[in-house]
Simulated scan of single mutants.
Amino acid sequence: MQYLLLIYRNEADLAHANPEERKKISAEYGAYTQSIIQSGHFKAGDGLQPTSTATTVRVRDGKMLTTDGPFAETREQLAGYYLVDAKDLDTALGLAARIPGAKTGSIEVRPVMIYDN
Rank of each mutant, 00 (worst) to 15 (best):
P100T: 03
R9I: 12
R110E: 03
D85Y: 09
T91Q: 10
D116E: 14
E76G: 05
G69W: 10
N117V: 13
E20K: 10
Y8Q: 05
V84N: 04
T56G: 01
K43I: 15
G105C: 07
Q77P: 10
L89G: 06
K23N: 12
I107K: 01
P111M: 02
I37A: 08
A96W: 02
G62M: 00
S26W: 13
I99C: 07
Y29R: 08
P100V: 01
A97K: 14
R9P: 11
I114F: 09
D85C: 11
T104M: 12
H16E: 15
A72I: 12
A79R: 07
G105V: 00
T104R: 15
G69H: 09
D68I: 09
V112H: 04
F42N: 03
H41W: 03
Y82M: 00
I37Y: 02
V59Q: 05
K43L: 15
A15Q: 09
G40T: 00
V59R: 00
P50I: 01
L5G: 01
D13H: 08
G94D: 10
L93T: 06
K63M: 09
A79D: 05
L89E: 02
G45C: 03
M64P: 12
M64H: 12
T67Q: 12
S52M: 03
Y32N: 04
R9S: 15
G62R: 07
L4P: 03
T53V: 01
G80T: 02
V112M: 06
I107M: 04
R110P: 06
I37T: 03
I114Y: 07
R60T: 09
T67K: 11
T51R: 05
L65V: 13
F71P: 11
P111D: 01
G62Q: 09
T51N: 09
G69Q: 03
V57E: 04
H41M: 06
I114E: 15
L5N: 02
I7V: 03
K103T: 12
K43G: 11
L78N: 08
R58S: 11
E28K: 06
L14G: 14
D116S: 15
K87M: 12
G80H: 03
R98L: 15
V112N: 06
D13T: 08
R75F: 09
G62K: 07
L6T: 01
A102F: 10
G47M: 04
E20V: 12
M113S: 14
A31H: 10
G69L: 04
D85T: 13
T67L: 10
D61W: 00
A54R: 06
A31E: 14
E21Y: 05
R22A: 14
K24I: 12
A72M: 14
M113Y: 11
L93Q: 14
